[in-house]
């Protein structure tokens, strides 16, 4: 990193131009809780750092009609302090609250958590479950990409090297909706998910599930959107039988590896356990959201 350059552009156009012009390795810096670790552990040696925190579009939280849009570089801490967002998307915030420690959340952003492209990122499954869409900009213009399509493999995204995730749009919530995210870690804090499960569901007036999305972390090379698990809930009253089917579908969707954080066997089993527990919390939250 002898020749590292640091730039902090104030517009999206300047940021993408800087990235496009860089021949060597460029990295976008938001909270830095992954990029700086990788730099100082000699895992990467970037030639250019583009700090995007001075670009307004990346740091705002705003309502668009009934939907929420928040900047990709908004820190976890800033989201935690936004009362209405917490009320609207408690499951997304379950994930955000689990990223690292308070110190880490003081810097870490959902955009960074996503673009680091770890299968174990805690904010990603509840964002996928929420149906969040990422707004991406590059030298050739803007495009919208569902969050579940961003990560293509461990450490890999579908983004071009000069593209930036600008913000996320979370759709308007129908009444009687609830979401939740649970992860399993051996420690209570400061840990990486061995398994994570996010559930987002909507009930009708009779308490039957009309819509659901279920996403899993750390059980495959990328975070997973599991349609079969959602199908197990839709049309049911999210009763014992449905939860049983959800757990089975979640476990069946896993394609994990043995690593230092967990075994294949363990991850498959606990994915079902967590999906079920998360669904129970989402159900309770939906019931309260009349």
């Amino acid at each position: 990193m002898q020749n590292l350059r640091y730039e902090a552009p104030e517009t999206l156009a300047d940021a993408t131009a800087l990235l496009a012009a860089e021949d060597g390795m460029a990295r976008v810096l938001a909270g830095g809780t992954d990029v700086i670790v990788q730099m100082h552990s000699d895992l990467i040696e970037p030639d250019l750092i583009v700090d995007v925190k001075n670009i307004p579009e990346l740091t705002e939280i705003a309502k668009e009609g009934g939907a929420y849009r928040f900047g990709a570089a908004v820190s976890g801490k800033t989201l935690m302090l936004h009362e209405d967002f917490n009320k609207t998307w408690p499951g997304v915030m379950d994930g955000v609250r689990l990223i690292g420690s308070l110190q880490i959340r003081g810097r870490a952003s959902v955009g960074g958590n996503l673009c680091n492209a770890s299968p174990a990122a805690d904010s990603v499954p509840p964002m996928i479950a929420a149906g969040a869409v990422a707004s991406v900009i590059g030298p050739n213009g803007a495009r919208d990409i569902p969050v579940e399509d961003i990560v293509t493999g461990p450490g890999q995204t579908c983004l071009d090297k000069s593209e930036i995730v600008v913000s996320f749009l979370l759709p308007e919530r129908p009444p009687r909706s609830g979401d939740a995210y649970l992860r399993f870690t051996p420690r209570t804090e400061m840990d990486i998910a061995v398994v994570g499960a996010g559930v987002n569901l909507t009930l009708d007036d009779d308490g039957a599930c009309t819509a659901a999305r279920v996403a899993l972390a750390a059980v495959a090379p990328t975070p997973l959107l599991v349609a079969e698990a959602a199908d197990a809930l839709i049309g049911t009253k999210v009763d014992e039988t449905a939860l049983e089917a959800l757990a089975a579908a979640a476990s069946a969707a896993c394609n994990p590896i043995d690593d230092k954080r967990g075994t294949v066997e363990y991850r498959i089993k606990v994915a079902g356990v967590l999906a079920r527990r998360a669904a129970a919390i989402a159900l309770e939250r939906a019931g309260k959201n009349q």
Partner: peptide, 16 residues
């Protein structure tokens, strides 16, 4: 060694 750091060498934190 696969876990040469405090993230994966898990010493207890206060809430544990």
């Amino acid at each position: 060694m696969e876990n040469p750091g405090f993230l994966d060498y898990r010493v207890p934190v206060a809430s544990d």
